[in-house]
Design a protein around this nucleic acid. Structure first.
Lengths: 218, 218
DNA sequence: AAGTAAATGTTGCACTTGCAACATTTAACA
DNA sequence: TGTTAAATGTTGCAAGTGCAACATTTACTT
């Protein structure tokens, strides 16, 4: 997985940060970064910590739009749509105004080009991740969403073991289903012998899954 | 909306296409492009036409992952996840192997930089669009999905009139809901006086919408 | 270690929605 | 223009799920 400053030595990275006029942010757990930022489009780089891009409904429903882990990058645009970035863990972030990246025209240092390519690569990968997310959310039943999620995770890491990257409450939010109903369905899947659960480790006991055919047990 | 070759004159565009070894594709209506491509990661540019990135479930459920209109750009990666690109209208496409874009190192022509910036800009905007999609799919009821979609479209164009970019069958697929159930709910919304429907033109009759509060009529 | 908050497990019930089956309208095309 | 296909409208019903309310476990905090 490419990171934002890959292939750029510390000295050149420092130069870049100066040119971009980056600002550094230390965010406490459970606090938002919205009040401490300005600009119309920002690139954020998480040095360490864990962020969530969320959209709060007035009715209390929390939609997890994106999750941003260590050394990950996100972009935030301020328009008609208001998202919030909340630190689930204490986080250190670097913020760059997108315009400062783009407006550099005759700066033909190779590390600037490298930076652009990194950012492009990261953004494209992000798009693919979002495609997967969309694919999951397209499933109509809780069972199919869970199985689709498991299958994707399993394929991604090439093993039948899945370590959930977040807790079950957040997983329910991520899959956009009711936590209690999810809990019920996980129990069903366990009892029917399709999965095994030990804390945040889930083992897939089925060979192949398609949402139409019955599951094939091994 | 930035397009892939914006700010690049025809002569330089031609040079770029040569260096990138682009291939041109003419796709008939309702046919897939999967069989005619190779590479591990592709950038596609739709000269004219209309494409859909879809994921077919064995049970016949069609998930619309992305829709690609005229002069739009998409990226396609071949990994564990198999998507299909289908032309809903006869389309002309330019395909570029992503590696050919990235592997150019000491080519410091300004139009190459411009191209990279365009691609970056487009990809970021794409990410935001997918965020909106995710936001919609996060809603748990048909009514809320419809209203969220309408609100986003309305805000985007700054008017209370919405012209659906596709037919109702596809809209249902896009919102990942049953077409019949959607038809039923649209009827309800009409009868309750929240919207007005004339073909593919929908007029919003409410001032503000939040999925918790009751709708405010005007 | 005690006390509090957060996360997880459980279950009944009302309601929404997917599904199926069919009618009707509109579009496509020879 | 007539014929066929596609899109849209309608509705009963069974099934799945959100919601609420609560029990229990685990994680924090001082």
């Amino acid at each position: 997985m490419v990171k934002l400053f890959d292939g750029i030595n510390p000295k050149n990275r420092e130069k870049l940060e100066k040119i971009f006029e980056t600002q550094t942010l230390h965010v406490k757990k459970n606090s938002s970064i919205l009040e401490s930022i300005h600009g119309s489009r920002l690139i954020g780089y998480v040095v360490n910590g864990y962020l969530q891009m969320i959209k709060n409904d007035p009715n209390g429903t929390k939609a997890i739009i994106d999750e941003i882990l260590d050394e990950d990058t996100f972009n935030l645009t301020f328009n008609y749509n208001e998202y919030d970035i909340v630190a689930k863990e204490p986080s250190d972030i670097i913020l760059i105004d997108y315009q400062n990246i783009i407006n550099i025209n005759d700066f033909n240092k190779d590390y600037y080009l490298q930076f652009l390519k990194n950012l492009l690569e990261i953004t494209m990968t992000k798009t693919e991740e979002k495609n997967e997310r969309i694919e999951i959310l397209t499933k109509k039943t809780i069972r199919n969403r869970l199985l689709e999620y498991f299958t994707i995770m399993s394929n991604k890491h090439g093993t039948k073991f899945i370590y959930l990257p977040f807790n079950y409450t957040d997983l329910a939010d991520y899959l956009a289903i009711d936590r209690c109903a999810m809990s019920r369905e996980l129990k069903n899947l366990k009892e029917e012998g399709f999965i095994e659960i030990k804390g945040k480790r889930i083992t897939l006991l089925y060979e192949k899954y398609s949402s139409s055919d019955p599951l094939i047990n091994i």
